[in-house]
Each structure stands twice: as C-alpha cells, then as structure tokens.
C-alpha cells in the first residue's frame, strides 16, 4: 500500500436505497489513474446512481467515495464545488442550458465558476468545439437548434474544456443512430487520450463499451458481478456477462418487463 498510488476513484461498500428499494448493495469498485472503465448493466440496476454518488449529486446511505485516496463522500457546498473542478460530465440528455448559446454552454464553468474574461472563455470554448468537429458557426446557435448527435458533441466539449482529471459519461450513445454513436465513441476515446484523464462510463451499448473501455465492470442488483479487461469480455465465463453481451432473454438476469 505504501509504494502503490491509490486509485484515482474508488467506491467502497456503497449502499443506496430509494423508498425501501435497494439500488446499490455494497458496491466496491476502483478505477486506476488514467484508465477508462465502463460499467455495463441492465436498466434500473443502479448505473446512474453509481455515477451520481461519485460526483456528489446523491449521498450514499453507507460506504464512501474516495478520490486520490481521500474520502470525499461528505463534502458539501464550496468544498464539493471545488472538487467538481476536477470532474467533467457528459449527461445522457446532454443537459445543455437552453437559455444560453452553444459557446456559452461550453464556457459555462469558465464564465461562471472561474470568472474567466468573456473573450478568453469564448476562445477556449471555440477551441474545444473545434476539437469535437463543430465550427464557429455553431457556437452562436441555441442548443435547441442542434440534432441529438451535435448536442452530444457540445456536451463533450463542455465536459473537457477545463481539462478535468476524471470524466463521467452517462449513456453517451443512447438515442443516437449507430454511425453517429460511433463518431461520439471515437471523439470520447480521442479526448480522454489527449487529456490523459481517468474515464468512467455507464452504458448498455456493447459496441460503445468495447470501443471506449480499457476495463469493463458488470453491475447487477447493486453489486459488481464481473470485472475484467475489455479484451476479455467475450471469454468472461460469467453467466451474467454472457447473457448481457449476447442479449439473451434467458439466463440468470430476469428481465424487468
């Protein structure tokens, strides 16, 4: 333990229930610095809750979240917001602010939390937008005028613009056609590699998982039932993983329908 660096991000025995229903049941998971972990699992298995607890949008009932070995579970207010400077997040719905233009969305943290001068913030936003393949003509538009794929690009630009150490991707390809989804996957891989940051994604899209993951963990009924290198996913020997990646109705996972 002494000469080994702590994981960049770690969940330790995290439990969470909503109105009596157990969602996370003692989740243990660690992500080494600079690695890309993808959490797979069916709908309603606690994937979103796992991410929301890590970034502090939800508080666990028990257990802790550690960043660089430091317990951050109970940080609130200004301390929490300072910590979130290390984080970037791409939301499932992109969650762009529809009252602002595209570039103001990308520059939001620079303008409002870091109080960077407008001209500089705009220049950095335009640079981030160009990295995700969007030109200056898009920068003045309102997010509502953009297609789903373009909104995801803007969301990605917003997540990476202040060079976070950990980026979270919540279902990055949901609702996109397969080609657009692949473009977004490529952009994610490219940005994560460029920043050298740690990435945590949740998805049920196996094509996306194979593309962006170094490691894959499978979440089922609030616990990790398998974890391994992305390359080993097809020979996991784990009945849950096999059922999930092959999309079979029969197996140990009971469909919620």
């Amino acid at each position: 333990m002494t000469d080994e660096a702590p994981p960049k991000l770690e969940w330790r025995g995290v439990k969470k229930r909503f109105q009596g229903r157990v969602v996370l049941d003692g989740l243990d998971l660690a992500v080494p610095r600079g690695r890309s972990l993808v959490i797979i699992g069916g709908s309603g298995q606690g994937k979103s809750v796992t991410i929301k607890i890590a970034i502090g949008l939800l508080r666990p009932d028990a257990g802790e979240v550690r960043v660089d070995g430091r317990d951050v579970t109970r940080l609130r207010g200004a301390e929490r917001r300072d910590l979130s400077r290390e984080f970037g997040m791409l939301f499932q719905s992109a969650a762009l602010f529809d009252s602002l233009t595209v570039w103001e969305n990308v520059a939001f943290r620079l303008l409002n939390a870091d109080r960077v001068p407008r001209a500089e913030a705009r220049a950095r936003a335009l640079e981030a937008l160009s990295r995700v393949g969007l030109g200056p003509n898009v920068a003045q538009q309102s997010p509502g005028e953009l297609s789903g794929g373009m909104q995801k690009r803007v969301g990605l630009a917003r997540a990476v613009v202040s060079q976070p150490e950990i980026i979270f991707f919540d279902e990055p390809t949901t609702g996109l056609d397969p080609i657009t989804a692949d473009v977004i996957n490529d952009l994610i891989v490219e940005q994560v590699r460029r920043l050298g940051c740690t990435a945590v994604s949740i998805t049920h899209d196996m094509a996306s998982a194979r593309k962006i993951a170094d490691e894959i963990a499978m979440l089922h009924e609030g616990r990790i039932v398998w974890r391994g290198a992305a390359a080993d996913i097809d020979r996991s020997g784990n009945p849950y993983v096999e059922q999930f990646i092959n999309g079979r109705a029969d197996g140990p996972i009971k469909g919620a329908v």
Partner: peptide, 21 residues
Amino acid sequence: AMRATEQIDALETLSTDPFRY
C-alpha cells in the same frame, strides 16, 4: 424543466451553485 432535463445536476457538476445561479 431544468430539473427534468438534468440541467440543475449539470450546474452542480460545473461548480456552480444552483441557489446562486
């Protein structure tokens, strides 16, 4: 609507206090 579309969560992750903003 901002709550429903995760925009309030997004504010938090962008180090901005929704109460202030």
